[in-house]
Design a protein around this nucleic acid. Structure first.
Lengths: 133, 133, 133, 133
DNA sequence: GTGGTCTAGACCACA
DNA sequence: GTGGTCTAGACCACG
């Protein structure tokens, strides 16, 4: 589980963390009982303030995704208890795709070209996956 | 030139306007001399406060993308000596697409499903375009 | 309505504000509709950060004591709707008195001396009240 | 020397200990050479973490009020050349009493009621003292 | 070492 | 001008 931040997007950093952990938990990448990096460690990795991570974790705890234990750390709670349905997961992606489509429209990139670009990036992604694994 | 806002994304509204006008100008959708809706009109269209539009336009003027003329309106200035080539424009999109792909991976959504989702959202987008115009 | 802060007490500043406004509202010193100093103004008066006042006001709004209106300011809501009963008001004082008693005990000040001191300070307080009004 | 904690006050627990030991030492209740409960014992009495007591004692040692001797315990050092006079000790209390009086004024609690409340809390305090020891 | 709280600075949206 | 949000630094309580 690696969190990627985009500081230029304008999306609050703590929200980016929340969403990515949610996604990973919902999809099964994170399983119940799995430990997450401590607040301090993740903050250092991402080079952000501890409180920003803290806020993200607190939010995730409130949602029942994580369990924070004083002194011991941070653990995944109930991903499978209420995993997002496939349709709900797709909904989350839809929002991001819509933004891409608006962007493509403004850049005058036709639908066909956008589809090709997606295929290209998908191929590239899987190639990188193979290289790393 | 239509601006699409997403209030749930966490991205500041004024930034969304700035980014979309920048893209449109950079890609050639907006050409030097083109008129943009006045602050008041755009604010009403988007149902947001005029100050927010004002701020976006001010930002764009500072960047040299727009020119605000007292009493006459808002016009596109020379955005760049030469509009971006198609490949350069595609590059801009690639970064965003990559984020979507990572997200899809975390959500365990297969490539095929992602392509279908793109098609669906494209259809939806064009439908909305027809409805509005 | 004047707020007095004690920075050496260890009691969170925002809490001191909350308690003093609560007290004033509960006792009728503040009446429904009364305007309170804006977040910025109070922050400047007390020489603390705006967020600290903001937090106190937010807490008071959650409790139904204040109403915060975007752009217009901060107003007292329902002091008389649910004023603290006399016993409840006394309870609040009791906590503070207990602390004084513990302190007196450690300073080896006898009960009689403490009572005399209270009388002395009460006389002093009323004298100052007369001088100011 | 008994320490009284108030967990609802917002004052850091370690600070409450520091303040009360300081007062007791300054007033002469604690005299040079007197032994204080060990960190472990006091922590158990007050039902708080040993680290919290440790921190309070460390603070007091830094101020020269206590002396911690490895393996033997915790002793009062010379607190001040001359214990505070009664009037000086009363001055310390006056400040706190003044705050109580202002609070009572805000709560519209009359002088007589305040005096009665003091008597009540004094009785309660002495009762607790008898119960504990 | 762990998570939690308080205060603060910068920025956002709105009237 | 108004209140609200996001990020950060310092400190607290606990294991």
């Amino acid at each position: 589980m690696v969190v990627h931040l985009n500081f230029k997007s304008g999306v609050p950093v703590y929200l980016q963390i929340v969403q990515q952990v949610q996604s990973a938990a919902a999809s099964g990448v994170l399983r119940p009982g799995d430990a997450l990096p401590s607040v301090r460690v993740l903050a250092e990795e991402l080079r952000i303030n501890r409180n920003t991570v803290s806020r993200a974790y607190a939010e995730l705890e409130k949602e029942g995704v994580l369990e924070l234990r004083q002194g011991s750390g941070c653990f995944v709670k109930v991903p499978s208890a209420s995993p997002l349905k496939r349709s709900a997961r797709a909904d989350r992606l839809a929002t991001e795709l819509d933004a891409v489509i608006v962007q493509a429209h403004h850049l005058q990139i036709a639908d066909g070209a956008l589809r090709s670009l997606l295929d290209e990036r998908l191929a590239d992604f899987h190639q990188r996956q193979r290289d790393n694994g």
